[in-house]
Computed example of a mutant assay.
Amino acid sequence: MNLGITGRVLPAFYERLRDELTFPLSWERSVARDFPAWRAGARAVVGESLLQPTAPGPEPFDPVTVEERDEGTYTARTVEFALSRYGRAHGSLLTPHGSGPFPAVLVLHDHGAEFTIGREKVVRPGPDLVARATAWADRCYDGRFIGDELAARGYAVLAVDTLGWGDRGPLVHEDQQALAANLFQLGTSPAGLAAHEDIRAAAFLASLPEVDERRVGALGFSMGAYRAWQLSALSDGIRAAASVCWMTGLKEMMVPGNNTLRGQSAYFMLHPGLHRHLDIPDVASLAAPKPALFQAGGRDHLFTAAGVESAYAKLRAVWESQGAGDRLTTTLWPETGHVFSAAMQDTVYSWLDSWLAPEPMDPEPAPS
């Protein structure tokens, strides 16, 4: 009998712990079928799990343009602004030529254990980093910079480094655990800090005079996908979100051999105690009935097809319960791995166009 540790440093009794999770605050288990009340209560529980102190008030963004270049049909700027009351950060801001205001997308970069670049993974950088960024785009995005692709289609785009990436780092892979431990000691967490910063970045993007605040979306791949659906769940300012290659049921993920069990990188997508209340797709469902798109690869080594389909079923039940089934798109690409291919991107761009451009989307349907 194994009395200690098994699998990827799982306790031998992990199955009992896993089976005891009933996600009592999920919509499917809610006795009172009042969706706005459920969403408000569940969102409050998620907010507590983010482990963030209450701010005394909104910090002025005070943006400053650091550099600017003309990219033909749009302008690329590096802007510095107050990302939180703890400090300022650089963002890559792309704005189409023309009068505006434009629809906008906050593009959230992936993890990938590559910390020397962050926002440069999704927005083409200047000459100093372009070779490294291009190699990453070739590896994960079929050679495209998805932020630039969106700007060429008429969107304003913002990308910001998460703590530990680019000029907010770079971390060394094994240092992620130390960073997490130290943030926990200080009363917060890497995932909670990232979530609050994403909310703040979205608010900054919506505040720009070039942007139509009624048409702000979020898009991300891998860790960026997690951040995109989480942001839509937590922020009313995000009107539509597209998430590529990060969705699963928790129980399907917590099995020996899963990458998440290695720790380290998982800290950026882990809110302590949250899953005593809500499953992963339950949290994403807080975005309902807003438009949401989820894509997954059938050969993704990080997320099994069974876990993806289980999560998709939960998501569909929530959106359909609100008469908004047509606002949820869930796709499994059978022959695709953990990548955001050109074909997947084209589908996402068309989907974003249908909800964010050229006119504002219709009002949300009334919850049933």
Rank of each mutant, 00 (worst) to 15 (best):
D110E: 13
D110R: 11
G112K: 07
A113E: 13
I117A: 01
R119S: 04
E120A: 05
E120K: 00
E120H: 03
V122W: 00
V123E: 00
R124V: 01
R124T: 04
G126K: 02
A133E: 02
F145I: 00
D148Q: 01
E149A: 08
A151H: 04
R153K: 11
Y155N: 03
Y155K: 02
Y155Q: 05
A156N: 03
A159C: 08
V160D: 08
V160H: 09
G166V: 06
R168L: 15
G169P: 09
L171N: 15
H173K: 14
H173G: 11
A178C: 07
A178P: 03
A180V: 11
A181S: 15
F184N: 13
G187A: 04
G187M: 06
T188Y: 10
G192S: 11
A195N: 07
E197K: 07
I199V: 13
I199F: 09
R200H: 14
A202T: 13
A203F: 05
F204T: 04
F204G: 05
S207T: 02
L208V: 10
P209T: 09
R214E: 14
R215H: 01
V216Q: 00
G217N: 04
A218N: 03
F221T: 07
F221G: 06
S222T: 08
S222C: 09
A225G: 12
A225Q: 08
Y226C: 11
Y226D: 10
W229S: 05
Q230K: 13
A233H: 00
L234I: 01
S235R: 07
G237W: 03
A242M: 04
